[in-house]
Nucleic acid binder design. Structure first.
Length: 708
RNA sequence: GGGCGCGUAGCUCAGUGGACCAGAGCAUCCGCCUUCUAAGCGGAGGGUCGCGGGUUCGAAUCCCGCCGCGCCCGCCA
């Protein structure tokens, strides 16, 4: 309710100011209302809303702020839902919500009408984007969880959202694994590989059946340690990829195999040849994508469509973008200098040129060669050998997202994963004509870590250079800091730290080194921990019953852990913190919801009905009011979280609401309350809290269990 | 050399447009389960908000300058 109340308050105040001091509000009441700042007073006793406008008015009217605040407070026509207004502090105008009104609204499950769509069309949220050549790790998890939660928040606000997960199935990373299979796993042929993947699948399914855990796709805790390496194909590739990287390092001549593999894959994609390397690469990418979808499903993450690099190649998206860029002068052919023969894009005109010029005149005489010399503002888009760079393809793809490329993919449903309908995936031919419309978005949010900031800027510059300044402005790099490992965690994983690494606060995850915490390992350890807790509390349940309770707890713990940090915080991952279920964690929030549900269940069994009517007197108590006012702030919190692009705000909110409820829980034995009216009112508050907590958990992609 | 980000309690982090805004969790110590699930609640100790200036009645918050740390700046992806 707070958003709507705040809105009507702003309008009322603006109307008053415009009517009484027209000179001080030349912009008119509408514009003034929109510009008014509304804060939250430091203490609940001071009210629910605080407007600092009088400090500003005081200057224009040359009158003391406190007197102005008083004048507004006494003359203001209070909108419904607000009880009173008063001057506070040095000149704040504070307003108080009508607590009984708010309670009645909340108990009637009224959603805050102040939260409305703010985007003027469809938003694409692209996240996950994991190279399909190895198991997902916790860094990928942060990306996916952030993106998924952001998409949930947008949808909650009423936006139209399309979630995409881009699959680079023809890149070097996949080629490297193909090399590994062909060269290190002697005799690996497409047929043998198909068998191997099939075996992994069957084995996985068998193990899942033995564990009797149909909802939980992976269940490593039940698997003996020695079998884990062969358990899953993505795990196998994780190790194989590291082995290939080691091979390249130890035997530089072997790097030619990668180039050959890459060329073979490209030829096949362009239809110029069929070859076993390309077939293997396609098998690998397909199987790994399946593994990733399965992993993400454990975290309640799904996608609308999976656009693939292979179709971008086959459908010649780049060729189209290249023509547009040449035609509009976005790129030019360099004829001299180190970039001779390349098509380059000039960007940041006028901005970086001075600095770049200065740097160029100063040869880096004694400097180390470790950093790249500052360049002129030209970015290579097409190499002198005629091939396109990564950014070039990204610009083409970004054009497609906005519907500016003039070409589209075909689409088909992907095979089901664990019985669930598969997402749509791109195809070059024989697509399903009945696919939903994809692309042609108004807004594009690319969830990519902060290390890619530079390239994201180049992509936006590319749109601008093509004359699409608006689209560039609606291209948002939803960036976040990386997940690294504490040295202790790296050691725990069996990694040998160098002396320098030993001193650092964190070490970077590296797929090439095979250094990282696999997403499924984290989830399995959480599941293991949650199961142990559940087994203690519910010895009456059998193993399957206990696991059914443990699954959502593990998922909740993982998601909350990744969401409680703001985007700019670098997460130095350590199992000790991540595996905790105490304090500010997902299970803490879920536990509060369970307690509320338990009260509601018992009340229903006893025939006690919730009723806010007799709550007026109760609402004067701070613990009760703290709880209700927080519960009524869900939409306001979502509003702020979206404005700041910080899902962490919602996580923090859920925790605070759980905290307020736990406090209330210990002070107010609801069902033991003797006065029937008070009991009904307390029960109504429990119901409101339970509902809002469940909403918040849903937004965070977490389950609100009935028992745990 | 340039760009971006970070620096707040022993540790990990909040502080979303200036009022008790110096906070939370963990860790440590002390209490609380015959009463709606103790994955909980209450209490204690613990901080010159990196340093120095500036703006303001008022700055962790805004501006400038330092210091330290991280990431990025390729005809790799």
């Amino acid at each position: 309710m707070y958003l709507a109340l705040e809105e009507s308050l702003r309008h009322a105040v603006a109307a008053f100011v415009a009517a009484h001091w027209p000179d001080a509000a030349p912009e008119g009441p509408e514009a003034l209302a929109a510009a008014l700042v509304v804060e939250r007073p430091p203490k609940a006793e001071l009210g629910d809303f605080a407007l600092p406008l009088c400090f500003d008015l005081a200057r224009r009217l040359r009158r003391p702020p406190r007197a102005l605040a008083q004048e507004i407070a006494s003359g203001l026509a209070l909108p419904s839902g607000l009880a009173r207004a008063e001057a506070a502090g040095g000149g704040y105008l504070n307003a108080f919500a009508d607590r009984a009104w708010l309670f009645a609204q909340a108990a009637a499950a009224q959603r805050d009408p102040g939260l409305r769509p703010a985007l003027d069309g469809k938003a694409i949220v692209e996240h996950t984007n994991i190279n399909p050549n190895k198991a997902a790790h916790i860094g990928h998890l942060r990306n996916a969880v952030l993106g998924d939660t952001f998409a949930r928040l947008l949808r909650f606000r009423g936006e139209t959202v399309e979630v995409q997960n881009y699959i680079d199935n023809t890149g070097v990373q996949v080629a490297d694994v193909a090399v590994g299979l062909e060269r290190l796993e002697a005799g690996e042929t497409p047929g043998a590989l198909t068998t191997k993947i099939h075996v992994y699948e069957v084995e996985r399914r068998t193990l899942a059946d033995e564990g009797a855990i149909s909802p939980a796709p992976h269940f490593l805790p039940l698997i003996p340690e020695r079998h884990r390496a062969t358990y899953s194909f993505d795990y196998f590739c994780w190790d194989l990829y590291a082995r290939v990287s080691r091979l390249y390092a130890e035997n530089p001549a072997s790097v030619q195999w990668r180039a050959a593999a890459l060329a073979a894959i490209e030829q096949a994609e362009e239809g110029r040849s069929t070859n076993s390397t390309a077939e293997i690469a396609a098998l690998v990418a397909g199987a790994i994508v399946t593994a990733h979808l399965r992993t993400m499903r454990r975290l309640h993450i799904a996608y609308d469509v999976l656009p693939r690099e292979s179709e971008i190649l086959r459908l010649h998206f780049w060729r189209e973008a290249f023509e547009q860029m040449k035609a509009r002068g976005a790129i030019r052919l360099e004829t001299a200098g180190k970039n001779a023969g390349c098509w380059v894009m000039d960007w940041r005109q006028g901005e970086g040129s001075a600095a770049a010029g200065a740097a160029n005149t100063e040869p880096d005489a004694g400097g180390d060669a470790g950093y790249a010399a500052p360049d002129d503002a030209a970015k290579v888009i097409v190499r002198s050998n005629g091939t396109v760079t990564y950014v070039g393809k990204d610009i083409a793809y970004q054009l497609w997202k906005f519907g500016l490329l003039g070409r589209d993919f075909q689409y088909r449903r992907r095979q089901p994963v664990d019985g669930q309908t598969g997402p749509w995936i791109t195809t070059a031919e024989d697509g399903d004509a009945n696919h939903p419309p994809f692309g042609r978005a108004r807004w594009v949010f690319n969830v990519i870590d902060t290390r890619q900031s530079y390239l994201q800027e180049v992509v936006q510059a590319g749109l601008r250079a093509l004359g699409y300044a608006d689209e560039a402005g609606r291209s948002v790099h939803f960036s976040y800091e990386m997940v690294a490992l504490t040295p202790r965690c790296a050691r725990e994983l069996g990694y040998q730290l160098s002396p320098e690494e030993e001193r650092k606060s964190h070490v970077e995850v590296s797929g090439r080194k095979g250094l990282g915490v696999k997403a499924d390992d984290l989830l399995d350890r959480l599941l293991h921990g949650a199961w142990a807790e559940v087994a203690n509390r519910h010895p009456e349940l059998d193993g399957a019953g206990q696991l059914a309770l443990a699954g959502p707890i593990a998922t909740g713990a993982a998601r909350y852990f990744l969401l409680k940090f703001t985007r700019n915080a670098l997460i130095a991952f350590d199992f000790e913190d991540a595996l905790s279920f105490d304090g500010e964690t997902g299970p803490y929030v879920q536990y509060a919801a369970v307690r509320a549900a338990s009260i509601l269940r018992k009340a229903e069994a006893a025939g006690v009905q919730p009723d806010p009517a007799a709550g007026a007197e109760l609402l004067a108590a701070t613990d009760v009011w703290d709880l209700l006012s927080l519960a009524a702030r869900l939409e306001a919190t979502v509003h702020q979280a979206l404005a700041a692009g910080e899902p962490a705000y919602v996580a923090k909110y859920a925790f605070q609401l759980a905290q307020a409820f736990n406090n209330f829980y210990h002070r107010r034995p609801v069902l033991a309350e003797e006065d029937a009216g008070r009991r009904a009112a307390l029960l109504a508050l429990v119901a409101v809290t339970q509902r809002q907590l469940a909403h918040a958990l849903e937004l965070l992609g977490m389950a609100a269990p009935e028992i745990m």
